[in-house]
């Protein structure tokens, strides 16, 4: 018998909880209210109480802390073992994970071990009359949304695309905190981290102003960076640019990257495939520059400039530099 509980794996970096985990909690507070499901946040590692309290304030009814020092850093082997053990003894009806690198790394193995269905990169979440979760996922480059259900196995699992849902916060929200000390004595971590290099990159989903470069910028981001500096904006790129290594994946906008919610977005040299435009749906004002006046991107823009990015952008930079 499954419990009327929906679990969210809370990803964090020490005391800082990943936004996507909070966004899922936020979405679930809305869903659970009408359906009578309990929202449960699962925190792994050792943690101070303020993090656990926060999980509740952001929407959980209950927090389970899987308390063990070996869980302080993500490990595919250890996390999948601990979460498999917990889920197969507690039977939650659903289990959701943010579609981060670690989250996606974990989800496949965990779902296979639990012998259940897994949906990827959900951008929509509903519950039907029977209480079955309906996951909306972008398909075929994002022009279509497929509604996926998992009827015959539990938990219903999905990863959720970062930047999709809105957070909830209630300073006074109360909830239960449960501590579990998992037995990890018999398990080895088969993957050993030797080196880690992380630069604190901007979380694009939080960016107020973004300038996005695509193939039409001519393979060099310096112009885009300069314009971003002058307008106090963040830089994003399309997938082809990230594929070429011009910018890290953390700056990639679109289906397999991040969704923007910027107030102002300037898009340079992007043709506007569905892969990309699905990532700018929630933006405020969108301005685009592209050389092709038939470009699809203009159908997704408030202001359109037909022209060569290599001519227009330097001229804009010059104007902004003059009038500083």
């Amino acid at each position: 018998m499954t419990r009327k509980e929906i679990w969210v794996i809370v990803e964090r970096n020490e005391d800082e909880i990943e936004d996507v985990s909070l966004e899922i909690l936020g979405k679930l507070t809305v869903l659970a209210k009408s359906s009578g499901y309990k929202v449960v946040g699962i925190v792994l590692g050792t943690s101070n109480e303020s993090v656990l309290r926060d999980v509740i304030r952001y929407g959980a009814d209950k927090v389970i802390l899987m308390k063990h020092e070996r869980l302080n850093e993500y490990s595919n082997d250890l996390y999948s073992k601990v979460l498999f053990d917990l889920a197969s003894s507690e039977f939650p009806t659903a289990l959701l994970i943010g579609a981060t690198y670690y989250g996606r790394d974990l989800a496949g193995r965990l779902a296979a071990r639990l012998r259940t269905g897994l949906t990827a990169n959900a951008i929509n979440l509903k519950m039907d009359e029977e209480g079955l979760l309906v996951f909306g996922v972008p398909a075929y480059g994002g022009k279509i949304m497929a509604e996926i259900v998992c009827e015959r196995a539990r938990p219903q699992m999905s990863t959720v695309r970062p930047g999709t849902f809105t957070k909830f916060f209630d300073q006074d929200r109360k909830g239960e905190i449960v501590e579990v000390i998992p037995d990890l004595s018999s398990i080895q971590d088969r993957v050993r981290v030797i080196e880690r290099k992380v630069t604190k990159s901007k979380d694009l989903t939080k960016s107020e102003r973004t300038i996005v470069g695509g193939n039409g910028i001519g393979g060099d981001l310096s112009m885009v960076r300069r314009l971003a500096e002058l307008t106090n904006s963040d830089v994003g790129v399309t997938r082809p640019l990230a594929d070429k290594g011009l910018a890290p994946r953390d700056l990639q906008v679109g289906t397999t990257g991040y969704s923007l919610k910027s107030r102002l977005t300037l898009i340079l040299g992007v043709s506007g495939s569905e892969h990309f435009t699905s990532g700018i749906r929630d933006c405020g004002t969108v301005i685009s520059v592209d050389i092709d006046k038939e470009s699809e991107i203009f159908n997704h823009s408030d202001y359109c400039v037909v022209g060569d990015v290599a001519e227009i952008v330097p001229a804009v930079i010059k104007k902004l530099e003059e009038k500083r």
């Binding site: 949906t119 309906v134 509604e147 015959r152 823009s301 400039v305």
Partner: peptide, 20 residues
């Protein structure tokens, strides 16, 4: 375990589309 229950077109957001 998973099934596609339905497909729907993701309708584009209406934008002003003012050409400069």
């Amino acid at each position: 375990f998973t099934f596609v229950r339905g497909l729907s077109e993701i309708t584009p957001i209406r934008r002003k589309k003012v050409f400069i």
